[in-house]
Each structure stands twice: as structure tokens, then as C-alpha cells.
Design a protein around this nucleic acid. Structure first.
Lengths: 341, 341
DNA sequence: TATATTTACACAATCGATTGCGTAAATATA
DNA sequence: TATATTTACGCAATCGATTGTGTAAATATA
């Protein structure tokens, strides 16, 4: 029963042309006459021809696909990022494939290999929390496949990188809490292996210092994954300090929301007792009660830029080698009830 | 500087074997001696050989990839579904690629073609809200590529389908509201083109009838996408009725959450004035205040089953043709503050 | 009119892995 | 010892699209 797919050979036979002419006509090669091309295209359409991307990919050693390797798709930030990438890629006839690694290094390595094996045309990735070795991206570089890192980017690997100004964001968020009168501000910090979290923390510390406030490391909690569970645990821990915090700057919204829920359950008022600000502006931030102050993250824009970057540099990389350039996007404070007092 | 990727030809030359022997050794073909196979594998590893999946795919007219075509990845339900699919697929050496169609029919058609062109080994899909024509899945059937529909499945297309018992879920949810004393229960209904929404509505209506309550169609609001925006608008509309509802069964959590937010803003108490129950058990359901009662959806399990189904039937389909079978999973009421009184 | 240039198309090699068929030796069974 | 069977491996075609090289005609330019 299986109908055999139509190939350019079928079209060639039918129209008495060679396959080269068919192939060229289908992609508007200049050496094919306009009428001929039209006729061929019409017939291809009529016969229900669908190009075999595998064959084309094999020949060109490249498929028209952009790979996205990320920790998890179920985070609002990642969803937006992907949408941005897809919008841009689709415009240029590229398909986006996503693969998640659960924030696990081993899995990241394996998935990078999988993408490599698929001969993707470019890869966009945000590192897993603990990744410190970047050898799994070398094969792409060797094959002159554009690699673009976004958000969680490596420091010791030459490639295109798109980030936000985490230092400034951390600084602004903390300064805001200080202006709200907080003097004992806690911080939910992400893995120190990732610059984005170190930078946020540095911004936090500098804001404190600038205001003449003490930087008390017992108020800084190190997180593994910035999950809700960790958020709750961390908050409990913080409240047991001899001097509990009166403000919190969390490196993501998930942990901040969880912390607020814990506080509410304990009868501690937000923002009166503790003012809280998160990071990312997840949808949940505006649904939680009190609504969560946060730092906006231009995830969709980041995705769009990343895709553009991959596409623009497809040829460039082949000729000139990987770009090593950093683009920094701006963030904005979004102030809501959880920190306003 | 592009290092050329290692091929089986390179290994063959180095080891003085033919490429056929290399190819067979790499996949433990019975006709290759154990020591030979070991030696070849060791050398392949040492040389950094990576199979060219495009070449293999071309030859087999199939790539080791499962395609997932869904409306949007940024819904918790979809994220869970995908995780379920990935877990299962990975176990069998398959890669999962996702492609979203924004709940748009045109986009669904186009993306189905894209997946087809990629010569995927199987496709798992949940229909867009308005899809009524399924011709874009025919090519898969013609090529004996397993097609598995999940959740939003077609009624007039022979394929494997995995669904939940929507009628029973709608019935249970409504009955619960009735037991809580509601007598004027409204319903947020999804597109009538999708059986899942029709069935939920049918369950809702039957529960009302069974309790001797009037089924008032002015209390049933038709939604396009069950978005937050629509939810707010619908709630406002319902509250303007001469007899506003005292209960609400929403076909998803997103719209329910939005409705509750609207009610809170208007000073209408949930659940006292209006008891609300949603659908899907999104994470937000337990964060909202009051926490949202809802119907659990076994999305991850559904994904796992779907993947299993695709993988199991890969060979079967080629021999016996498409399966046309429906698997129905059970749901559970999850009762929280928004409906308990 | 003579030379360039452009247009129009075909031949055949190529990308890398797979596999049916064939050969030959080694081992097992009668 | 003779026949079967298994083990071990190579040859060469194949999957479908692409593209460098080449030829010939048509059109343009000098």
C-alpha cells in the first residue's frame, strides 16, 4: 500500500528533463529558464513532490535545522526563548528542534552529540547549571557550525553569546529593596559556576556596600536548581537566623514564589515583614498574591537575536571561523506588591 | 580548518576491512565475529567516529526521530506530555523533536509537512483547536509512519488515539459543585470541534440534569483558545446575567485562574459566592489563592504511552497498516479551596 | 559579421551508511 | 568421510538531491 514518495527522478522522467534541471528549477537557479522553471514547479506541485531533506542534508552535509539545547522547556523563560527562535527561523525556512537536558551535565553532553549527529545547521544553547567543560561543543566548531550561547553562557569558550546585564539587574533589584527600607536583605543565589548568578550576586553585594549595609554571607543561600522545593527550604532556614531578613532578592521567580508561599503560611507578611523581588517575570509573578516584583527578562528577544545570529553566520562561520562576541540586553525592574511598601 | 568527520570508510581503511563489515560490526550484526566487532568498535571510538544519521536515514528512508506536533509548548500540560514522550523515546535511542503550531490550523498543516519532510519515524500530535480536515496526516499513513493522536484527537481519522475520559471528568467536576450546593453552574467550554470539550460539556449537562437542575445555555460560554484574556471577559459577561452563576466549571485552569482573579478584584468571594473548578491541574492551581480545585490530567503518562505506542508499532504498521485503537486514561478530582464550602 | 555573454540543459560523481548476494573457511552433524 | 550449517567478510548497488563540468543554442555587444 505504501505509495512511494515522489522524487525528482519521477518528475524528470515525466517531463523529460534531467534531474539536475529539476533540482535547479525548484530552487530558482539562474541557469534555468523562467518558463521551464514554472512548468517544473507546477508539475512538482501537481505530483505532490516533497523534497527529501535527508538526501539534501547528506549531500550538503547540513540539514536546514537549528538545534536548541536547553535545560527544560517547561519554564516560562525557555518557552519565550524558543518562541523567539522559532519565529525568526521559520522566516528563513529553517526548522527548530529542541532537546532538553534536565539541567544535567551528562545529558547535555549526550544531547549535544545527538544534535551533532543530526547535522544541524546551527545550535543555540543555554548551559546546564553545573556544566564546566565545554568539549562537547567542539565538534560544532570543528565543523564550522555556528554555536550561539544564550543566558547561561560559558566564559572560557569562544562563540557568540547573548546575555543580559546581570550585574546591573542584581544591583537595581537590591537597591530597590534598600529604598523600600530593607536593611537585612537575603539572596537566593544560583550555582556559582554560572556567571549569570555570580553577577547577580555581585550586583546585590555592591548595592549593599554602597548603601553602607553589611554583606552577611549567612543571608546568601546557594541553590542547586532554584526550584520551588529549594525555595521553601531556604526560606525556612533564613527565618531561623538570629536576625531574620527583612528583604529577599531571588535569582528566579520560581524560588521567590515558593518562599512567599512559605512565609504566608507562617503568617509573615509580604512585603511588610519581608519585601521580595524575583527574577524573570514569569506569568505566575502577576498571579501570586501579593503580586511579585521581579526583573523582566527579554527572553523572546534573546531567542530572536540568537536565531538571527545563527542564520546570519551560517556562511560567515564557514569562511571566517566562529565569532566570539557578546551581546548584552537590558532588563527592567517590574515593581509590584511584594516589594512596595 | 574544518576537520573532516570520520566515516566508516576511514575506519575501514585503517583496519583493512570493508565498509560493510564496519557497518555490521557497529550494530552487532550476527555475521560479524565477536573479536572483530570489538576491535572495530574500539577503533571507531578511538577515532571519534560519529554516525551520519542523515546517510542512514536516507538509506532507510527513515530517521531515528519522533516528531511531536502540538499547539504550544508553554502550557504545563504540554510540557508534561513532552517529558513523558522523551523519557520513553530516549530509552530506545530515539530523538524527539517538537514543533508548535500556535493552535493554528494553517500552521499545523505546514508543520506536519515539515516533519514529514524530515522523514521522522513516527508522529505524536494533539490537534489545534479548529482543525477539521486531517489530510495533512495522510502522507504519514501512506508511508506507514505511525501516527498517534493524544488528548485532542480527531474522530474521523483512523489512527492510534490516547485520551482521557472527558465525559466522566466533566460529570464528576459538575457533580462536585452540585454537592457543594451550587445550583446555577456556569461552564467555560472549548471549541465544539474538539470532542474533548464537547464531552466535558456533555458530562456537565448530564450532571445538571441528573440533579434536576436547569441547563441554561446562557451560562455556557464558548471559548476560542481558553486563554486568560477570554476567561476574564467571559466571567465579566456571566456576572451581568440577571441570575449570575454560583458555580463554575472551566475546561482549563488558565481560564479558571483568570476568572477567579477577576472575581477577587470585584469583591466576589470564591468559593462562597462562586465555587470554581478547573481542568488540568497546572502548577498554578496550587499557588493561586484560593487554591484551585481541578481535574488532574495524566499528561506525562499520556506522553509515555504515546511514545511507547509509536515505538512498538514502527514495524507493525509497516506490516499490518495503521492501528485504529483508542486508549482511555482516568482522571481524578483534586479538591481545593476554590470549590470547598 | 565576429566575438562575448547569457541562457538552457544533461552527464555523472558525490555525500555516508546499508544490505542482498556471493564466496570461503570453520565447525557441526550424519 | 561426506554433507549441512554457521561464521566471517567483501562487492557493489542503492537511497535522493546536489553540483562541477561541459555542450549548444540564443542573444547581446563591438
Amino acid at each position: 500500500m505504501a505509495k512511494k514518495p515522489i522524487t525528482i527522478y519521477d518528475i524528470a522522467k515525466k517531463l523529460n528533463y534531467s534531474t539536475s534541471t529539476i533540482s535547479r528549477a525548484l530552487k530558482d537557479h539562474h541557469s534555468i529558464g523562467k518558463k521551464t522553471a514554472e512548468k517544473i514547479k507546477a508539475e512538482a506541485e501537481k505530483m505532490g513532490y516533497r523534497p527529501n531533506t535527508l538526501a539534501a542534508g547528506l549531500r550538503n552535509n547540513r540539514s536546514k535545522t537549528i538545534g536548541v539545547l536547553i535545560s527544560r522547556i517547561n519554564r516560562p523563560f525557555m518557552s519565550s526563548l524558543i518562541s523567539g527562535i522559532e519565529d525568526q527561523a521559520k522566516k528563513q525556512g529553517y526548522t527548530v528542534i529542541m532537546i532538553q537536558c534536565d539541567d544535567d551535565y551528562e545529558s547535555e553532553v549526550q544531547n549535544a552529540n545527538t544534535l551533532y549527529d543530526l547535522r544541524i545547521a546551527g545550535i543555540i544553547t543555554s548551559l546546564a547549571m553545573q556544566t564546566e567543560d565545554y568539549a562537547h561543543f567542539k565538534p560544532f566548531v570543528d565543523q564550522q557550525i555556528p554555536v550561539v550561547f544564550v543566558d547561561r553562557v560559558p566564559e572560557s569558550f569562544a562563540a557568540y553569546k547573548i546575555v543580559i546585564d546581570n550585574y546591573s539587574a542584581g544591583y537595581k533589584a537590591t537597591k530597590h529593596l534598600i529604598e523600600m527600607g530593607c536593611t537585612r536583605i537575603a539572596h537566593f543565589a544560583g550555582s556559582q559556576k554560572r556567571a549569570i548568578y555570580r553577577d547577580r550576586q555581585k550586583g546585590y553585594e555592591d548595592a549593599l556596600k554602597e548603601a553602607g549595609l553589611e554583606v552577611d554571607c549567612s543571608r546568601v543561600v546557594q541553590f542547586d536548581t532554584l526550584s520551588a522545593q529549594e525555595g521553601k527550604k531556604a526560606m525556612r532556614q533564613l527565618m531561623q537566623l538570629p536576625e531574620p531578613p527583612d528583604g529577599l532578592f531571588s535569582s528566579n521567580d520560581t524560588a521567590a514564589v515558593s518562599a512567599i508561599q512559605y512565609l504566608k503560611k507562617k503568617g509573615i507578611h509580604v512585603p511588610k515583614d519581608i519585601a521580595v523581588i524575583g527574577f524573570n517575570n514569569d506569568p505566575i509573578a502577576s498571579i501570586l498574591e501579593p503580586q511579585l516584583s521581579t526583573v523582566s527578562h527579554p527572553a523572546a528577544k534573546m531567542g530572536k537575536l540568537a536565531a538571527q545570529c545563527v542564520l546570519d553566520n551560517m556562511d560567515f562561520v564557514a569562511k571566517e571561523g566562529q565569532l566570539n562576541q557578546v551581546t548584552t540586553l537590558e532588563t527592567e525592574l517590574i515593581l509590584r506588591a511584594s516589594s512596595l511598601r
